[in-house]
């Protein structure tokens, strides 16, 4: 059985050539290693600009890795020929954040859902295709009467259902979901999350789920990786991460999640977290915002190591010191 997605020591640096002088370089992913297990949902959580979406792009083959190995379904995505890539697309599909810009406004639902089938030469028989499209729509909670409609006639939630249906047309094994619910209303979010959970189960999908919302991640994910400035700072089975968050960054993120339980109170972490600009060049990427930082954080090399069974964390202070501000979980 091939592992759906395996990423090893992935580095990605965006460079811009300059005519004179040194090239402009922006390292976005630094030594990222991740494994998406069969029939699991791996949540990738982090703030904007941390490299979540770049990781998706590299995995989907839209960007080339600077170094490191990215395999999807056992294939090295950076070294695939065009025809091999086309084959991989049948196995790995994607749902994006914004359901408004990811559908062509001039195509109706039938055309949108047929396009992948045409490209791959599937379900050519008209009646067979019709049946297939109807079933597909029903599986994402839309009705067949909506096949001839255009994207502008649908609400945000319905459009996201169409995007999900489009991703499922080729019956993939791997689904990359880049913030699929963050553009939606809360009540609609719940519907789409339930739908994703259901299709993951019924189709035995392996999902890489990118989000910045821990509440959403807790609902859907089996494993979670927390990313900060292009590095994985903590990686653990979901329940473990929520009950025993280890990294100060994870703890800060968790306590910043707004919750109705905290009604009447501003959540504790709403403290404008202090910044320590002088620690900008320390070895630990989080040191500049960390209230637990020690002198050792300045030069202890960054390392993600197992601190609990299956639970890896990249904080050099942690093993020596109990963390003070435990978020209420």
């Amino acid at each position: 059985m091939t592992i759906p997605v395996k990423i090893e020591h992935l580095f990605k640096t965006y460079t811009r050539r300059r005519l004179l002088g040194k090239n402009w370089e922006k390292p976005v992913l630094k030594d990222v290693s991740l494994t998406l297990e069969e029939n699991h949902v791996l949540g990738l959580v982090g703030e904007s600009g941390c490299g979540k979406s770049t990781l998706c792009k590299v995995l989907l083959g839209i960007e080339k890795p600077t170094s490191g190995l990215v395999t999807a379904n056992g294939k090295d995505v950076a070294r695939l020929s065009k025809s091999e890539f086309k084959k991989l697309r049948r196995v790995m599909q994607v749902v994006y954040q914004d359901p408004y810009s990811s559908l062509d406004p001039r195509m109706n639902v039938r055309q949108i859902l047929s396009e992948p089938l045409d490209i791959h030469g599937l379900k050519k028989d008209r009646r067979e295709r019709n049946e297939f499209l109807k079933e597909l729509l029903a599986s994402v909670g839309l009705s067949e009467t909506q096949l001839e409609r255009y994207p502008h006639e649908f609400s945000g939630g319905q459009r996201q259902r169409i995007c999900i249906a489009r991703a499922l047309t080729l019956d993939p094994k791997i689904l990359v979901a880049d913030e699929p619910v963050s553009a939606l209303d809360v009540s609609v979010q719940a519907q789409i999350l339930n739908l994703l959970k259901e299709i993951k189960k019924s189709r035995r999908l392996s999902v890489l789920f990118v989000t910045h919302d821990f509440a959403v991640a807790r609902f859907l994910c089996d494993d979670i990786a927390v990313m900060y400035r292009g590095r994985i700072v903590e990686r653990a089975p979901a329940e473990d991460l929520f009950t025993r968050p280890q990294h100060p960054y994870t703890q800060a993120l968790l306590s910043a999640v707004p919750s109705v339980r905290a009604a009447g109170l501003v959540p504790a972490a709403a403290e404008p977290s202090r910044e320590y600009p002088e620690r900008e060049n320390w070895a630990c990427p989080f040191a500049a915002r960390c209230s637990h930082a020690q002198p050792a954080c300045a030069d202890t090399p960054f390392e993600l190591k197992e601190v609990l069974p299956h639970h890896a964390c990249a904080c050099c202070v942690l093993p020596f010191k109990k963390t003070k501000s435990k978020p209420e979980v």
Partner: peptide, 18 residues
């Protein structure tokens, strides 16, 4: 309905009431 459809961060639930 609005309140219960919020995904809780304090506990794991199997299905969100919608």
């Amino acid at each position: 309905g609005l309140l219960s459809s919020l995904a809780p961060v304090h506990e794991k639930v199997d299905i969100l009431p919608v």
